[in-house]
Design a protein around this nucleic acid. Structure first.
Lengths: 213, 213
DNA sequence: TATTAATGACTGACTGGTCAGTTAGTAAGG
DNA sequence: CCTTACTAACTGACCAGTCAGTCATTAATA
């Protein structure tokens, strides 16, 4: 009755990159790029450090992979959360913001955003990816919607980018608050609740008023 | 006529700490904590690396000094920008936001905020300083003002912290946009103009409506 | 079906460069 | 000429990246 010897390791060529990226996401978001140790990433991924280099050329390449892997699959979800149906703009805003909040709460987008902001000077091309793929596809789209809504008289006149800031800024504040202050004993933030209340505020603030109609 | 020999260096015991902190502020905001090199900070401050250690115990101590030196003297300015006179809340908001924007545009507070956000996991006590001395003294104060204004019927009912987010969030978005995206070719942001338009939006959004009075 | 050969995924000890922090010595300044 | 602000060469720890060797797995052969 020889005991079945557990192999020291298994071949898992397909699963390794995902394991490594998942571990790297944890470490990078916990510690930031510089303070994240490859030995620790390897340990959490259940591989040796050498294995990292079978799948990624360098620490920087791994960092890029993490950001891209988190961003790219979720850009569409974010984009759809902004697009929605063809209802009037105020109505649309009322569902858009909570949906956005729910997505951001469920995914590690907040942590990655914090990383990208923090490392933007050292990784300008990542800031560019974020800018082009996330920002322009959410804020940019919002700007187009606002321009159209202004033309239809659903939204008051004004610089549409600043209007987009008025809409999305509080979401960013909530996201970064959770990342920065909640871990050190700051207040909890219910992003979805904040989104709902803020939506009402901003709908009122952006609507053309009776008196002006 | 012997040429006056320029001394290789001068004793400037009083001026050194300020020089060093100024150079460190530049490097830390350009590169972040980890990627900033003490040799480079010393070079920009016009001293040798050893001199840094005559005035600061460690790189971390220098980092703390930078954050404190930039933040603490300006907390009062920020606080006053929120306090203002005892005019009704909407009026007050109309001057508060552009004043806040002007202060933040003039000082390197945005860059420091970005640093604190990025390094909050590695320097929780700095996040705490920021939270206690900056946030609670601006957002916290705003919350109190909002509660009072709600009681007076100047502002509609609602969670005052979320209302504060509605007010300040777009400012943060503008600040971080300038730090993150403008350097890589993203659009310019006129913070004061944004503050003015956003103030009108949010005043309207937070006011009690005719119909509800 | 059992045995052997070939493959390549994976390991972990090692290295070279980097950089925070130290210190022996120098010169400014009173 | 003494005190001390300051310099610059130095050190040692740390860590990203390497590579010679190991072994799980698969394919070929008997």
């Amino acid at each position: 009755m020889a005991p079945v010897p557990e192999p020291r390791w298994r071949r898992r060529k397909e699963a390794r990159p995902a394991d490594i990226v998942a571990a790297a996401l944890e470490l990078f978001t916990e510690k930031g790029f510089a303070a994240a140790r490859l030995d620790e990433i390897a340990r959490r991924a259940g591989v040796s450090k050498g294995t990292l280099y079978l799948y990624f050329d360098s620490k920087e390449a791994l960092f890029r992979a993490v950001v891209r892997d988190v961003v790219v699959p979720n850009v569409e979800a974010l984009r759809e959360s902004v697009l929605g149906s063809a209802t009037p703009f105020p109505e649309r805003l009322r569902e858009l913001l909570p949906r956005f909040a729910a997505i951001v709460t469920a995914l590690p987008i907040g942590a990655v955003a914090k990383m990208v902001i923090g490392e933007s000077r050292n990784f300008p091309e990542l800031a560019k990816v974020w800018h082009d793929d996330v920002i322009l596809k959410s804020i940019g789209l919002l700007v187009e919607l606002l321009e159209a809504a202004q033309a239809r008289g659903e939204v008051r006149a004004g610089n549409p980018r600043i209007q987009a800031f008025s809409i999305m800024g509080p979401m960013l504040l909530g996201i970064l608050w959770r990342e920065t202050f909640t871990p050190i004993g700051g207040a909890e933030v219910d992003l979805v609740a904040a989104a709902r209340q803020h939506a009402e505020t901003v709908i009122d603030g952006l609507s053309l008023k009776e008196s002006a109609r």
